Simulated scan of single mutants.
Amino acid sequence: MPRYALKIEYDGGPFAGWQRQAQGQASVQAAIEAALARLEPGPHTIAAAGRTDAGVHGTGQVAHCDLAKDWNPFRLSEALNWHLKPAPVAVVQAVRVADDFHARFSAIERRYTFRLVSRRAPVTHDRGRVWQVLNRLDVQAMRAAAAHLVGHHDFTTFRSTMCQAKSPVKSIDEIAIEDLPYPGGAEIRFHLRARSFLHNQVRSIVGTLERVGAGSWVPEDVQRALEARDRAACGPVCPPQGLYLTGVGYPADPFAS
């Protein structure tokens, strides 16, 4: 059976997350599998590079599927997008891949971006797509704090108590923080890059860094929280709507033209 990799965008707002839900709640995975069933009969199961939570968005999610027909990749993406309407999900690109390609297990890097807007006036066009705080944050202090988290560490403090990973030890390759203009305020974008992340790790890190930016913590408090290896030492976990899975890296990019 031919295998295809799909690059996928979605607005996570209407969904209970990426993963198909036993209770029948809307999920991104179920929406795509239903579209596949319109193209070829029978149940379909797709595998993704990351299982994003409820409310989390995707601009560079990757999944793979096996189909009976030898589809032209462009026609496949067009047909899927037709059957996905009106769900806020789009297949940006489809490519034929080797039979041993696996969207999750072949990945060597995940990239996330978190969007935070600081301004007094409510956001309108970005409502549901950013986390809004009212006061301006100290970006330099947050960068100093983030430096303590880059590298190979035990991230027990920064993972959900429901995390199913076998080990809390992970390596974060990069945390870059952008300070961008935004009407009436500023937008701060947190870019995180690692081979893999623990459950709620990104949101735990951003929520903690926000405390530093607001002046409630100093950068060294983040190092102490990390070394505590205690979930109770973490700062607040920020809401999901500002989080985006922006890209997945593979030894050879399947989507390279």
Rank of each mutant, 00 (worst) to 15 (best):
R3L: 04
A5R: 06
L6V: 08
G12M: 01
F15M: 08
Q21P: 08
A22Q: 12
G24Y: 05
Q25P: 09
A26P: 00
A35K: 09
R38T: 13
P41Q: 10
G50V: 08
D53K: 05
T59Q: 15
H64G: 02
F74C: 08
F74A: 11
R75E: 15
A87N: 13
A87P: 14
P88E: 01
P88H: 01
A90D: 13
A94G: 11
V95L: 06
R96E: 04
R104F: 05
S106N: 04
E109Q: 10
E109T: 09
R115G: 03
V123G: 06
V123N: 09
V130T: 05
W131Q: 15
W131L: 15
Q140C: 10
Q140K: 15
A145T: 11
V150M: 11
H152A: 06
D154L: 00
T156Q: 01
F158T: 10
R159V: 04
K166L: 14
S171N: 14
I172H: 02
I172C: 02
I172N: 05
D179R: 14
Y182Q: 02
A186M: 12
R193G: 08
A194G: 05
L198W: 02
R203G: 03
R203D: 03
T208L: 03
E210F: 06
R211E: 11
V218D: 07
V218P: 04
P219M: 10
V222W: 00
Q223N: 09
Q223T: 06
E227G: 11
A228D: 12
A228E: 12
R229I: 10
A233T: 02
P236Y: 03
P240F: 00
D253R: 13
A256P: 04
